[in-house]
C-alpha cells in the first residue's frame, strides 16, 4: 500500500513514494546533470526504491497552476496510471501547497499569488482556521474584499510589491517562499485523500476556464 505524490508546478518536479506516511523516495533528494521529465523521474523512483507499480494504491497530484505544459504532463500521467491500476487520484492545487508551506514555517495568514494570464492571478487565502480560498482575477479587483480585516500577511511568490503598492497599511512579511514543499503532498495525505477521484472522475489542471465553470475541486 504505497502513495505516489506527483508535483510539476514548481521548477523542481517531484515524484514522491511513501508508505503509511513515511517517505521512501523523493526525487528532490537526487541530482542528475540532465533535467528529467516527470515520467523519467518515476522510472528512477521505481528503480531506486525497488517497489512494484502494482503496490501503489493512491496518487496525490498537483494540478497547478504552474507551467501549463509541465502540469498537463503530470496530470495526464497521474490520470492514466490511476485508471490503469484501478486506483484513485487526489488533486491538490499548487496554491494550497505554497500556502501550507508558509503556514508550516509561521502561523500567520498567507496570501499566495501565481500569475496566470496577462494581469490575472490565482490568489490563495489561508488563515489556518478555514479551508483555503482560491480566487482568480486582477489583484485590484479581488484583494480589497479578501484583505479588508488583515493587518499583516505573509505573501508567497514574487509579487509582494504589487500588494504593498495596493495596500500600504498592511504589514507584509516575506519569508522568501517561492516553491511549495512537495512532501506536504504526503504529510497532508489524510486531508487530500478526502478528494479522491476515481474514474470516470479524473483530475484536471487548473485553468481560468475550469475555475470559472466551478469544475475543479481544490
Amino acid at each position: 500500500m504505497l502513495t505516489l505524490g506527483i508535483s510539476t508546478s514548481f521548477s523542481n518536479y517531484a515524484i514522491i513514494i511513501a508508505k503509511a506516511g513515511d517517505v521512501l523516495f523523493n526525487s528532490n533528494d537526487l541530482h542528475f546533470e540532465e533535467k528529467k521529465n516527470i515520467t523519467e523521474w518515476f522510472e528512477v523512483a521505481l528503480e531506486e526504491s525497488k517497489i512494484s507499480v502494482k503496490d501503489i494504491s493512491k496518487i496525490i497530484v498537483d494540478i497547478g497552476p504552474g507551467g501549463t505544459t509541465s502540469v498537463r504532463t503530470g496530470v495526464a500521467f497521474a490520470n492514466s496510471l490511476a485508471y490503469s491500476l484501478g486506483i484513485a487520484v487526489c488533486p491538490v492545487s499548487s496554491i494550497e501547497l505554497l500556502s501550507m508551506t508558509s503556514w508550516a514555517q509561521q502561523k500567520t495568514t498567507v496570501l499566495s499569488l501565481i500569475k496566470f494570464m496577462k494581469n490575472d492571478y490565482f490568489i490563495g487565502f489561508y488563515d489556518g482556521k478555514n479551508d483555503i480560498r482560491i480566487l482568480y482575477g486582477e489583484l485590484a479587483d479581488v484583494l480589497p474584499d479578501l484583505l479588508k480585516d488583515e493587518k499583516s500577511l505573509i505573501i508567497t511568490g514574487k509579487f509582494q510589491q504589487k500588494v504593498a503598492d495596493l495596500f500600504p497599511e498592511i504589514e507584509i512579511i516575506n519569508l522568501g517562499i517561492m516553491k511549495g514543499d512537495t512532501e506536504l503532498l504526503i504529510k497532508n495525505e489524510d486531508l487530500f485523500s478526502k478528494r479522491a477521484l476515481k474514474f470516470p472522475e479524473i483530475a484536471f489542471p487548473i485553468s481560468e476556464q475550469n475555475y470559472a465553470n466551478n469544475q475543479v475541486h481544490f
Partner: peptide, 20 residues
C-alpha cells in the same frame, strides 16, 4: 502540437506502467 502530443504520450506511459 506540443501540448497535444504530451497528453497522448504521458497517458500512454502511465497506461504502460499500470498494465505492464
Amino acid at each position: 502540437l506540443v501540448g497535444s502530443l504530451l497528453v497522448g504520450i504521458n497517458t500512454a506511459i502511465g497506461l504502460g506502467h499500470g498494465w505492464n
